[in-house]
Simulated assay, not measured.
Amino acid sequence: MTRRAVVITGATLNLGFEAARSIALGTYPGSKEDPDEYLIYILARTDNKAADAINKEAAAAGKPHRAVFRRLNLSDLTSVREFGTAWAEGVAAGNTRDYPPIQALVLSAGLQFPGALETVESTGLEATFAVNHVGHALLFHLLAPYLDATSPTAARVVVVSSGTHDPAQKSGLPDAKYTSAKDLAHPPPDMVNIKGRQRYSSSKLANVLWTYALVRHLKEAGKLTGKDTSKGGIAANAFDPGLMPGSGLARKGTGIEQFLWNHVLPHIKPLLRLAFGTPNVHTTETSGRNLARLAVGPGGSGDPDLTDGLVQGVSGKYYEIRRPIKSSVDSYDEAKQEDLWDWTIRYLTKGNASEEARFRAFR
């Protein structure tokens, strides 16, 4: 049994927690075929003893997997760098018990700020974009050298997006708008007063744009896995967990919004499916199990373009739970993908040529 790490952001609550729990308990689709032992890193700003709860359940079920909590604030790039440094130092010291090769990096955390423009004090970045994209991108680049590209199921990066990124899905949120990464990071005067929920949908579009750019650059660097994962490499995909009433997404909303989200909507999911014209309304547990499948599921069967098809060695897909679907028209715009990719690396490295070279080469 090989010991590998799974790193999940926002994993103390809701979707991220349920994904971590599903991995620990082996309840994700295909788990019976998976021989690995996982050390699950639960990353969040505050410790609510989620790791302890998962470990208690896993031990009672006789599972070998264990979870550990590590503090990480995605809006604070110093916090992200400290985590990356700790990982690098642990690997350099040969501490494979606490820092085993990373099987999966699951970028799950997400925040929504419905009100007026909010910025991060330390950087001046618009808060939604800072948390949902910038902090995650830095975490990826710091941990990329430690992704287990020799894993028989391929190392994986899963970016949690949302159907709200696609105007064609008519999610009820304002349409996502991408003019440039610079505009999302530091809104110009004509973008200061747009609705906070549009900032959220735009950040979710950025998640898909970045995922597709990542796949292209991994391929160019010779690091993208193929379907024959025995040759090594890294896979990357985006994931839409669907509408999950009762999750923490409304915690920045008004009192009425929070009440409806937490106490009313979770009980009328069938009506919500009818109202939105989609079956993509789920509990966090259901979405979490399927997120876990993409992260560590050992394979799948059949055509990768079909529901429940092959996931091992597959990249560049946008999954709606277990169904790969087309993402928004804008998400396939390579000029926008490259604008985001290039701006992100230049912003994160701030003129440090050696670090920029490492980030671009995934070293």
Rank of each mutant, 00 (worst) to 15 (best):
K177V: 07
K223D: 02
D148S: 06
S151D: 15
A250D: 08
P152I: 07
A206W: 00
V157H: 04
R216I: 06
V208I: 14
A221E: 11
G246S: 11
S202E: 05
Q198G: 05
R199H: 03
S230Y: 03
A144H: 05
Q258W: 09
D190V: 13
V160M: 08
D166L: 04
F276S: 04
I194D: 03
R197Y: 04
L271S: 04
A238N: 00
K223M: 15
V157L: 15
K252L: 08
P266T: 05
P270V: 02
A213R: 06
K252R: 03
T153V: 15
A213L: 14
I234K: 05
G226S: 14
I268M: 15
L147H: 05
D190Y: 13
L173I: 02
D148N: 15
R273M: 14
P145W: 02
G172L: 03
V160F: 09
G163N: 06
G233K: 02
K170E: 08
T254R: 07
A238L: 10
I234N: 12
Q169Y: 14
R251I: 09
K252F: 01
V208Y: 09
K231G: 08
V159L: 10
T254V: 11
N262K: 15
L274N: 08
T164H: 01
A235F: 10
S161N: 06
F276D: 01
L205I: 13
A168T: 11
F140C: 13
P188Q: 08
T254Q: 09
G242V: 02
K269V: 07
V160T: 09
G242R: 01
G253K: 01
A149K: 11
G226F: 09
A168N: 12
P167E: 04
A185R: 00
L260F: 11
D175N: 15
R156A: 06
G255R: 11
M244N: 13
G277T: 14
P245V: 11
L214P: 03
L274M: 12
L184G: 00
L218V: 12
W210C: 08
G232R: 02
L265R: 01
D183S: 12
T225D: 14
D190R: 13
H141K: 13
T254Y: 10
P245G: 04
K195I: 03
G248P: 07
L173Y: 10
L143T: 06
G253D: 10
S201E: 04
T211A: 14
A185I: 01
L265E: 06
P187S: 06
V158N: 00
V159D: 08
P270C: 13
R273T: 14
A235I: 03
R273C: 12
G172Q: 14
A221H: 07
V215A: 06
A206T: 03
T229C: 14
L274Y: 03
N193I: 02
V208C: 10
T150I: 02
K170H: 10
L142K: 11
G172Y: 09
G232E: 10
P245E: 09
I234A: 13
I194G: 01
L272F: 07
T225G: 14
F259Q: 11
T211W: 09
G255N: 14
L147A: 02
S162W: 00
T179K: 11
P152M: 04
A154R: 05
K227Y: 04
N193T: 11
Q258S: 06
D240M: 00
G242N: 08
V158C: 01
N193Q: 10
L260G: 00
M191Y: 07
L249K: 05
V264E: 02
